[in-house]
Simulated assay, not measured.
Amino acid sequence: MKKAFITGIGSGLGKAFVNVLLKNGYSVYALSRHLPDEFNGKIKFEKVDLLSLENVYKSVDSLLRGERVIDLVFLNAGMLTPLKDIHDTPIYEMNRMMDINVWANKVILDYFIDNRIYVDQVVAVSSGASVNGNRGWHGYSISKAALNMLIKLYSREMTQTHLVALAPGLILTPMLQDFVLSADEKKFPSVKRIKNSPKMTPEEAAEKIFSLLPHLKSFESGSYVDIRKI
């Protein structure tokens, strides 16, 4: 049975992706703040707030101790706060996004290296915001750009593993609805474009990403890949 490790399964893409993994016969190990009731008894779960970086390593250890092989690592957990100009965004708010979107992933990847766990494939959920620099995306854009580079750097060290930073396209998640679709489209022009663009449900996105996992390996390890350009 194949094994998958995933972060951030409380809602949206992460929750949907767990369902796809289970449907396809994977044994799932999940790290998240919340465990949806439907997964009780179906997955191995460790509760942790990724903002508490000091707890992440030991939480991964509690979840994976004794495992030697993980087929897929899906680094999904992420944080976005309401759109605003970067001038109006305090550094502490951007630091929180960096902790979840970047540094928690570093701690997780370090665990695999330290404990000599063979990982076949790593997919870190990035964003088009990491490269387009649209007004209002403040620390989210910066953190996702840093995530892209983090994955590239780890690809140089995890030479037996294939890694990509994947922009999954527009997904109707609570994060998108709460912080983007409700924002001022006159002040932040990307909002209007997003409103008028086709969007996937989390379930559609999860199925699409899962179906593309073999194809992602055709890209150089460490690459940033936008799913809309595949």
Rank of each mutant, 00 (worst) to 15 (best):
E157P: 00
E207P: 01
F179Q: 09
V18W: 01
D178N: 15
K229Y: 10
M149H: 10
V122M: 08
N115G: 03
E207T: 05
K106L: 10
L163S: 08
I91L: 15
N105C: 02
V20D: 03
K84P: 04
I117W: 09
I91K: 05
L21Y: 03
L51N: 14
D184Q: 10
K23Y: 05
W137P: 02
L216V: 03
N134S: 14
V56Y: 09
Y154M: 05
I43S: 04
P214W: 07
P198Y: 07
L83F: 13
R135Y: 11
I91C: 08
P198W: 04
A145T: 12
L64Q: 07
V28S: 04
V131S: 06
R135E: 11
S221V: 08
L163R: 05
K84F: 06
N40Y: 12
L176T: 10
I70F: 00
K42L: 15
N101Y: 06
F45P: 02
R116Q: 14
P90H: 09
L50I: 01
L176P: 10
S223K: 05
G128M: 07
I142Q: 08
N105G: 13
G10A: 07
D88M: 12
M158A: 14
Y154P: 03
F179A: 00
I108F: 04
I230M: 13
A183P: 06
F188S: 02
G136A: 08
A205F: 04
L22R: 03
W103F: 14
T7H: 02
L163C: 14
K187E: 15
V20E: 14
L50V: 00
P189G: 09
S32D: 15
L22H: 07
A165M: 12
K187F: 09
I43N: 07
L35I: 05
E185K: 13
M97N: 04
A145Y: 05
V122R: 02
K208R: 12
M200V: 00
E54Y: 08
E54L: 01
R193I: 11
L163G: 07
L31P: 01
T159R: 15
I194Q: 05
N40M: 10
Y140P: 04
R156Y: 13
R193W: 11
V125N: 07
G78V: 10
L72R: 05
Q160H: 13
D99K: 12
R135W: 01
N95W: 11
V123W: 11
L150N: 03
I6M: 06
W103L: 13
Y140R: 06
A146G: 14
I194G: 02
V123E: 12
Y92W: 12
W137D: 13
F112K: 03
N148L: 03
E157R: 14
L150S: 03
N115D: 02
K199S: 07
I117Y: 09
K84C: 12
E207I: 08
V20Y: 01
R135K: 15
E38W: 02
E185I: 00
A146L: 09
P214G: 05
P168W: 11
G25C: 06
K229Q: 12
I9A: 01
R116F: 11
K199C: 05
G10H: 04
A77C: 10
M79F: 10
Y29K: 00
K58D: 13
S52G: 04
L109M: 11
V60C: 01
G133D: 11
